[in-house]
Each structure stands twice: as structure tokens, then as C-alpha cells.
């Protein structure tokens, strides 16, 4: 290949590598050092304590495991609903509907809004909006305490997370669907395949690349969920909706344990790394190259 011995492969990747290094890797490495210290985030000096923080996390307190379980549950539901609904809506919106273009736009609107603002709006809806809607409709569902009950609050957070991101995945799936050659589907119709056969035998396998991208994106975004919870429940009620990132944030800034928070961050990063590699491997294997 013509590129093998060229210096361009270094030169062209350098700006990207450099920027990523100073904005992400360097601060992350310094933070990693703090995971080996006891530091409240305020004193001018941090005290080196070796692996004590990791010991605390693994052996003395199972709070971080609860938080990881919450994050895992959230991510699983978030991935499932985002991809499922996005695919269904995308399938509808690629049909010959008169309003298809407008509807695509509408579903994309929440995605262009700041997550903090999305959180605020939904807080308003769950409290004031639902209360008034209940008075009008008397639908029992609306009278539940969606942010006040710790189990319901979990679903509320998932709902808002999916609501905000759905449009993004819809656009990606629509793109994938439109890339499928129409003659393939027509040929199948001629052969007498019904709509489900066409979907499972032709559409779904050919959507491989879109599914890979969407799965990967929803996985990393699900795991890193932060802003929405911050604006919506602030981890409440009673600490039941703390995600891993929010817990790290709380440990470092609210409880003044910057060292311990950094140690949690390292562990969390490793978990994320492993999970994403697995998902990438699995979905790559199922892809069908056109």
C-alpha cells in the first residue's frame, strides 16, 4: 500500500493525539494520582496513602456497588428503549407519509435542547403538570409520585433520558433504512415474503452498521448519565437515583473526599472500558458487509 512508509501517518494524527492528551489524558492521569491520596479537595497538600481508598471501596462500604447496579440498570433500559423505539419510529417515518418530514423534525427537537434544561422542564411536568392533568383526566397513573417514590424515580429518569436522546437514534436508523436497496425488498415481495419476514431476513441484518453505532453510542451515554439526574432528582429521593458519575461527583465535592472519588472514577473507567469493548466485539461480529 502506498501509505506504508510515509511520515503522514504520524503527522496527520498528531493534532488529534495532542489535543486529546492535554484536555483528557493529562488531567485524568493527575486525577489518578489523587486516587492514591487522602485529600478533601480544599487543603493545599494531599496526603499519599497508597491503595487505602480502593480498600475502602471494595471491603468497607458497599455503597459504590449499589450505585454501579443503578447505573447498569439504567444503561440497560436506556439502551433497550432508545434503540427499540428509535427503530420502530424510524420504520414508520421512512414510509410514504405526508407529514414524515415534519414528524422527523419533531422527534429530533429534544435532542437539540440542553440536558440541564430538559431536566428542569420534566421536573416541572412531573410535579405541576401531572398534578393538573390528573385533576382534569383523573388518570391514576398521573397521580403517582414519579419523582418522590424511589422505584418510580428510576423509571422517570430513564424516561427523560430516552426522551431527550431518541431523535438522535431515529436519524441514524432512518439513514440506515434508506441505505437498504429498494430492489432487494421488492424482490422479496415478489417472492411472496410478508412484512415480518422482510424485516427480519433483510432489513435487520442490513441495518448492522447503524445498530453498531447506535448501540455503542447509547451504551457510553447511558453509562455516563449525569446532567439529567442532576436537574431532575439530584440523586434523590433518599439517594436512590445516584448514577456512578453523580456518586463520584458527590464523593469528591459534597463529601469532600476527592481522593476516594478519584479512586471510584478509576474503577468506573475500567468497567466502562471492558463493557464497551464487549459490545463492540459482539455487534461487529453480527454485521453484514454490503
Amino acid at each position: 500500500m502506498i501509505f506504508e512508509n510515509k511520515k503522514e501517518k504520524y503527522l496527520f494524527t498528531l493534532p488529534a493525539i495532542f489535543m486529546v492528551s492535554i484536555t483528557i489524558y493529562l488531567p485524568f492521569l493527575i486525577s489518578s494520582y489523587y486516587s492514591l491520596t487522602e485529600w478533601n479537595g480544599i487543603d493545599r497538600e494531599a496526603k499519599f496513602i497508597g491503595l487505602e481508598n480502593f480498600k475502602t471501596i471494595f471491603f468497607e462500604n458497599n455503597q459504590f456497588f449499589d450505585v454501579l447496579i443503578f447505573t447498569g440498570n439504567y444503561t440497560a433500559l436506556f439502551m433497550l428503549f432508545s434503540n427499540l423505539f428509535a427503530l420502530i419510529i424510524a420504520l414508520v417515518l421512512v414510509q410514504k407519509l405526508k407529514t414524515a418530514k415534519l414528524l422527523r423534525g419533531i422527534f429530533f427537537v429534544p435532542y437539540i435542547m440542553s440536558m440541564i434544561i430538559v431536566g428542569f422542564i420534566w421536573k416541572f411536568i412531573f410535579s405541576q403538570g401531572f398534578a393538573r392533568l390528573y385533576e382534569i383526566t383523573e388518570l391514576g397513573l398521573l397521580n403517582l409520585s414519579w419523582l418522590g417514590n424511589s422505584e418510580l424515580a428510576f423509571y422517570s429518569v430513564v424516561l427523560v433520558g430516552v426522551w431527550q436522546q431518541l431523535g438522535f437514534y431515529i436519524v441514524l436508523y432512518i439513514a440506515g433504512l434508506q441505505a437498504i436497496p429498494g430492489d432487494l425488498l421488492e424482490a422479496a415481495t415478489v417472492d411472496g415474503a410478508n412484512i415480518f419476514q422482510k424485516f427480519f431476513k433483510i432489513t435487520l441484518p442490513l441495518l448492522g452498521p447503524s445498530i453498531t453505532v447506535c448501540m455503542f453510542m447509547s451504551l457510553t451515554r447511558g453509562l455516563k448519565v449525569f446532567d439529567i439526574i442532576l436537574a431532575l432528582t439530584q440523586g434523590g429521593p433518599g439517594g436512590s437515583t445516584y448514577s456512578a458519575t453523580l456518586d463520584i461527583y458527590r464523593e469528591a465535592f459534597q463529601y469532600n473526599n476527592y481522593g476516594l472519588g478519584s479512586a471510584k472514577a478509576i474503577i468506573f473507567f475500567i468497567i466502562v472500558l471492558i463493557l464497551t469493548q464487549i459490545v463492540l466485539k459482539i455487534s461487529r461480529r453480527n454485521e453484514v458487509e454490503l
Binding site: 493529562l26 488531567p27 493527575i30 486525577s31 453509562l223 476527592y258 468506573f268 473507567f269 466502562v272
Partner: peptide, 18 residues
């Protein structure tokens, strides 16, 4: 691409320092 996986909250203090 790996930094896509590093949660921003984990290094924000040191980022501001840098």
C-alpha cells in the same frame, strides 16, 4: 477514541488546573 469512555466528572478539577 478511548476518551469517549472517560467520564468527564472524574477529572474536572485537574482539567481546570491544567
Amino acid at each position: 477514541i478511548t476518551p469517549m469512555l472517560i467520564p468527564f466528572q472524574t477529572f474536572m478539577i485537574t482539567l481546570l488546573k491544567v
